[in-house]
């Protein structure tokens, strides 16, 4: 019997009721399915309002789903034993400002059932991991945003969680801060920790994730490994031609998706089906093909395309 998946989400929906009479409804999440394997770093990618935070809050028992279910290690999020194995950093984390970083991380350890020397040692260890040893005895009200984020990460790591859930861990940080958080996530992945994080920052997904789900308007519009998603979009070929001016190539009667003359060569994008005829013409006319490879769509293009598609179809959002 294999161990239960760290996160299993089935047909999850959430409708918020708003307004004084609770008569306005916002559909934040619709029929989401999600499953994580142990040790995976999984990204939830989506624009603002896509339902990323809602998903995460349901996993932490902060929000009750309207429909469907979420499981942490096979247990419902309301089960304390399930949450004991999870470290969570909310969006714009707000630890108690009147405490020092060390005091807050210690409190978090106590709430996770740690105590005594084991707790003290672990607190020092995680503060070191997030490079907050020097500022550990300063009140959190004096911290910069990056420092708060790192202390929040330390309080999540203090209990050695098997699963880390991070809501926009790098947004609002400067490049150095972002780099530090990324490195910490990678370190945790090496330790075998499963990580779920949500973001709207595409380079973070590319740098960190094994798999990604793209959410738009409360719906999952793409899911797969980063490589899969990107290669599924590969329908073009990029070709570099030397020894032929662009005008000659244009005269060949083949649709060029993109043509960029460079110093002594031309960079071309053509549809896959046009690649063979173009190659033939170029060689016949004495040109040299110095490079030929499938044109990779970046995750960003994929993301923008998914957004575009989602706009045409029915999406969530306010329904009354």
């Amino acid at each position: 019997m294999d161990s239960p998946s760290p996160i299993e989400i089935r047909n999850l929906s959430k409708t918020y009721r708003l307004g004084f009479l609770m008569n306005r409804q916002v559909r934040a999440l619709q029929s989401l399915d999600l499953s994580l394997m142990p040790g995976q770093v999984y990204g939830l990618l989506g624009p603002n309002g896509a339902g990323k935070s809602t998903t995460i809050k349901i996993l932490l028992n902060l929000v009750q789903p309207s429909e469907g279910e979420a499981r942490l290690f096979g247990l419902p999020p309301s089960d304390r034993e399930a949450r004991r194995r999870v470290g969570y950093v909310p969006e714009n984390p707000a630890p108690y400002e009147y405490l020092t970083g060390r005091e807050f991380v210690t409190l978090s350890g106590r709430l996770n059932g740690l105590s005594g020397k084991e707790l003290d040692d672990r607190v020092s260890e995680v503060l070191g991991m997030v490079q907050m040893t020097r500022a550990a005895n300063l009140q959190i009200r004096r911290y910069s945003k990056g420092m708060v984020q790192r202390v929040a990460l330390a309080q999540a790591l203090v209990s050695k969680p098997a699963l880390l859930i991070l809501d926009e861990p790098t947004s609002g940080l400067d490049p150095v801060g972002r780099r530090q958080i990324r490195d910490l996530i990678l370190e945790e992945r090496h330790r075998g920790t499963t990580v779920l994080f949500c973001t709207h920052i595409i380079p973070d997904v590319e740098a960190l994730c094994d798999r990604v789900a793209v959410l738009v308007g409360g719906r999952r519009v793409r899911e797969g490994s980063v490589a899969e998603l990107v290669s599924a979009q590969t329908t073009h070929v990029e070709m570099t031609v030397e020894g032929l001016p662009l005008e000659h190539i244009q005269a060949m009667g083949i649709t060029l998706e993109m043509a960029r003359p460079l110093e002594n060569r031309v960079l071309l994008h053509v549809r896959e089906s046009d690649a063979q005829p173009l190659l033939k013409h170029v060689l016949e006319q004495g040109g040299r093909v110095t490079q030929l490879h499938p044109a990779r769509f970046s995750l960003e293009e994929l993301f923008l395309r998914a957004l575009e598609e989602a706009k045409q179809g029915p999406v969530g959002g306010e329904i009354s």
């Binding site: 304390r80 984390p93 996770n112």
Partner: peptide, 14 residues
Amino acid sequence: ERRTIFLMVSKPLS
């Protein structure tokens, strides 16, 4: 108001 609740209620604590 200060959103400190998120870090507390999510802990393994009823």
